[in-house]
Design a protein around this nucleic acid. Structure first.
Lengths: 214, 214
DNA sequence: TGTACATCAGTGAACGCGCGTTCACTGATGTAC
DNA sequence: TGTACATCAGTGAACGCGCGTTCACTGATGTAC
């Protein structure tokens, strides 16, 4: 049993790393099992299929992230502030992200990259999975963003939230390359987590922007 | 000769459509030649390889878009306004985008989707290609954004421009799915080109947001 | 105008390769009596 | 305590499949003399 868990864990650890670096479809089971120093057939033995392995990897992070996000949102709601600001709602995602260090030291970065690939590659699957399992939390989040921006119509907010998601995922997926360019052009090193801090004011301003006249 | 051009064009037209719908790696030459009603081997005959076909498809759009963008930027520079606004610089991308209708009726949408896949799939290749061929135009664009936002440091602007790019590409790549969700949730149909108009105020506000204190 | 030859567009079939998955199997561990 | 059996983790080799690419070939068009 002890060794059994080892093999399964080895696969998970190697898969997370390679998935987050090259995406799901571009990473083969042979690469994963080679990195994990494990037999090729053991992926299908432990997980059933490649698709199931992908879901297991994602689920492991979601199951930590989502409850932590719910916790943050509730804290903010019960903080007695009568008017929450967009920044405050957005900031709720940071502690859950940092909590992913429990899963793995570089968990926050890994998770964001996985999200990026999950959205761009397996179109819609992840969204469906997230909504069926954590739809309520997502709904709460959306409602609080609406409360913080009563003058922006919900349809516009819907789009702006997805623009924000896109900005975050793109920055993560292309993050390494961008950081190198930025370092070369401006002589400033930007850390992976730092680019997230740069993101917050950007999306907060974008979400709360005045609605243009029709 | 007449029929020769036909086959090559048939391939381009089918490839653009399928690439923009499913991405480059997910689209096989067999799908393309089947859609184009053309022999499988003719792709390699006319283009040499799949990679060369992808480049040909992208180059066709870039060669229309980029000069048109340069034209817009120059017009804005010579308009006599002493202080350009971020919105004005951003708005410069719209006419070149619309000019892509010359290439093909749904050219603007196709191009944006291709861009999205190009950035997320063939990491860095497109950026390199764009910078070597149109680096000067990109540099001009960046400089004008800087002029419009003298109080934001260049490094931050660099990141914010890429956040904006990410927001746009994500909205396009996931556009169809998002439009369906939005229609179901808010009873409002959003057209493909309309989501771009929603994007402009969002990124303009994000780019010009005040720099947070350190 | 007619013939020989070269060039070019297009084709059908096969190539080798890497992929996810399957299968028959081994060996260790746990359980029942 | 000892034996028989069941369960489980893990393995090596092969499977079929779709992929991009290649190759020898056909037939039409253009050119030279």
């Amino acid at each position: 049993m002890a060794k059994a868990l080892r093999t399964k864990d080895k696969i998970i650890i190697a898969a997370e790393k390679l998935f987050s670096e090259h995406g799901f479809e571009q990473t083969s089971l042979r690469q994963i099992t080679s990195e994990a120093e494990v037999n090729l057939a053991s992926v299908n033995y432990h997980f059933g299929s490649k698709k199931a392995l992908i879901q297991a990897v994602m689920a492991r992070y979601q199951s930590v992230f989502m409850p932590a996000l719910a916790e943050q949102l509730h804290q903010l709601q019960n903080s007695g502030t009568d008017q929450v600001r967009t920044e405050d709602v957005l900031a709720c995602v940071m502690p859950p992200l940092i909590a992913l260090r429990q899963v793995r030291a570089d968990g926050p970065v890994i998770y964001l990259r996985l999200l990026g690939y999950a959205y761009s590659e397996i179109q819609g699957h992840l969204r469906k999975f997230t909504m069926t399992n954590y739809g309520e939390i997502m709904h709460e989040f959306f409602q609080m963003i609406q409360q913080a921006n009563p003058s922006v119509c919900p349809n516009t907010l819907f789009w702006r939230l997805h623009f924000s998601l896109g900005a975050m995922l793109f920055a993560q997926t292309s993050g390494q390359a961008l950081r190198e360019i930025a370092a070369a052009d401006f002589g400033e090193e930007t850390q992976a987590e730092e680019s997230l801090l740069k993101l917050l004011p950007f999306v907060a301003a974008g979400i709360s922007a005045a609605e243009p006249e029709a």
